[in-house]
Every structure is written in C-alpha cells, then in structure tokens.
Simulated assay, not measured.
Amino acid sequence: MKSLFYFCFFVSICLFSCSPPKESESTTDFFEINSFISLLEYDLEVIEEEIVRLGRFSENLFVDKKNKLANADPDKYEIVGVAANSEPGANPEKSSLFIPTISDNKEAVKELILLTNPLDDEFKRIVREIPVISQVYFNSKYHLNRLYPPYDVNLLEPDINVTNFNFYYQGDEKNNPSRVPVWVDEIYIDPVGRGWMITLTYPVYAENELKMVLGFDITLNDIIENYINKTSNQLLIIDGTGTVVAGKAKAIEALSLPSLKNYTYTQTITSDSYRKEDFNLFKSKDKNVRVIADKIINSGEKILWLSENKTKLKIICQKMSKLDWYVLEIQF
C-alpha cells in the first residue's frame, strides 16, 4: 500500500512539472506544503493502523485467561524494588517493567505481567519496523508500566502515578468513550528522559473493562530528522497553542524566536534548558509575529506577509487534519 502511495505521489509531481506554467498562485504556493503534509499524515495513518492491530493482539491475551496463566513463565521477570529489567544492564530482548509504590493490588499486577509477556516481541517488532516510533508501552490502572526499549527506571519517582499523565488519561473511559486511537499532539517532556515528544494512545478492553492504555511515542527529534530535514523548504510546524514543534533554523529565526547560530533546535529540545514559552509565536519579541500567530490560529488565514530588514517574507500556512498542528513555509 505504501509503494502505491509513493507511485501516485511522484506521478503527481511529474504531471505538475509538465503542466503549463499558468497555475494559480495559490496552487503553486501550496503544492510543496501539501505534499509534505500528505506524506506525514500518511505515515501517521500507518502508525494508527499499527496501534489498532497491537490493541487487537492485546485483547486476545485475555481470552482463555486461566489456561494462559497456567502456562505462563513465572520466572521471565525478576522484580527488584519497583522495577524489572531496568537499565543499565537490561536485557535488550525484553521490556522494562515499572510498578510504583502506590500500586496496591499485587496479585492483579502479577497476573497482568504474566498475561502480557507476549507483548515483548510485538513491542520489539514495532520499534524495528517503524523507526520513527521511539518507545512502545502500556500503562494500567493497577500502576504497571511495560515499556520497550528498556530504560532506567530510576529516572522515575518511585511513587509516581502514571495514570495522571495525558498519555494515559487521554485514552481512558472518560476521555475516549469511542475507544479509538487518540493523538496527544501537544508536546510534553518524556518522564523517562528521551526528550520532547508526542504520543499516540489506544485503550485495550477485556470483558468491557479497561485493562491498559497502549502508547507509541514519537520524539520531536524524530520528526525533524525524518521529515523536516528531508525537504529543502524552510518549514516550521506549530501546535494549536502557537508553540514550535519542529522547524528549520532559518525559519525559526525569521519569526524572531531565539537565535540558533551557536546551536541547533534539535540540541535545544533534547536538553534540560528547553522551555516551550521561548518558542511560542505568541511570545515572540516581534509584535508582527504575534499578530501573524493570531491570524493563523484564530482566523485561519493561509497567506501572510512579514517585513524583515526592508524586505517582505511570504508565509504560507496549512493546517493538518490528524493533528492540531499548522505547517508554515517561510519564503525568503
């Protein structure tokens, strides 16, 4: 299916390049940005399909539960304190398990570990086949976390309540009654130290009871490396609050955000010094940029102009459909 998409994509490029040069300005301006969004959203759809498939696999783990528990390997994981298979020195073939001290149903946790041990191979396969996914995991109301690749569990507070995080509650009964994949598209800092990211969640039910919420994490660095850096255009992605998700350095600086001359945006978002407010268009030191942010997010304008050093920069913008994100192209 993916090869068919690329074939159609390149055919469309050829048809466009061979057509008479009398296309409207709007069509010409938006061709590249629409192509970029189509590719990104196609890949996001593939990821959605994968988490649904993993959800179906997970649901089947609870079928014939008694028999599966009787045949499960009780020695696969050794719980030490609040963790099993924690870095450093973790077995790369297995996930890390985290059971915070607030967990008060040890029998339910033990049963869930045994039933979900087959997920290790699925988690590993997904990370291998879809490199843009940096982490695969689930969290449960019993306060059990299973995450792959394995990580240093000591990075977490031992009494942390992961059900209070958006990557859990966005998928629970209250926030996702339709039981569909949900993107947590407002960027947040990964509690296990892998930088700023977005997450796709999906709930798993058995006998109409929520057993776990699956999560796929994509870091901002992954988005930059796999999408932004593969185009020559000066692109910038902002979320619905006006915060930069990813972008080229020249595009970021053009909107009067912090200078990146001595380092890169990628280095910034993977460091402890990154602050979202520093990269929010509504907080730009340039009043005109703040006005542009308002026109994009609150008025839906798609073509804007910005004066810079006696020249005018053209900004074209298109909103994505899967995420509450806007893709901007700065034309110098």
Score class of each variant (00 low, 15 high):
F7Q: 08
S12H: 15
R290A: 13
T268L: 05
Y42S: 06
Q135R: 11
K287W: 05
G89E: 07
V213I: 11
F98R: 02
Y227K: 04
N280L: 01
I113L: 01
Y205F: 13
A84G: 09
D29V: 11
I303K: 10
Y202N: 04
A108I: 06
D121N: 14
F216R: 01
V80D: 06
L61N: 01
I316M: 02
A90H: 11
I316G: 00
V204T: 08
K68Y: 05
G242H: 11
I296C: 00
N176D: 07
N280R: 05
V184M: 05
K141C: 07
A206N: 07
L214I: 15
E329M: 08
G240E: 11
N208Q: 14
A206F: 06
G215W: 07
V327W: 04
E32Y: 11
T27M: 04
E173S: 15
V109R: 04
I252N: 01
Y326N: 15
R146V: 10
A293K: 02
S12N: 14
W305K: 11
K22I: 12
D190N: 12
K261L: 09
Y42V: 02
Q234S: 14
N154I: 01
D324L: 07
I223R: 02
I160H: 02
Y205L: 05
T101Y: 11
F62E: 02
P118H: 05
N161E: 12
E277F: 09
T268G: 02
I102G: 11
N175H: 15
I237G: 00
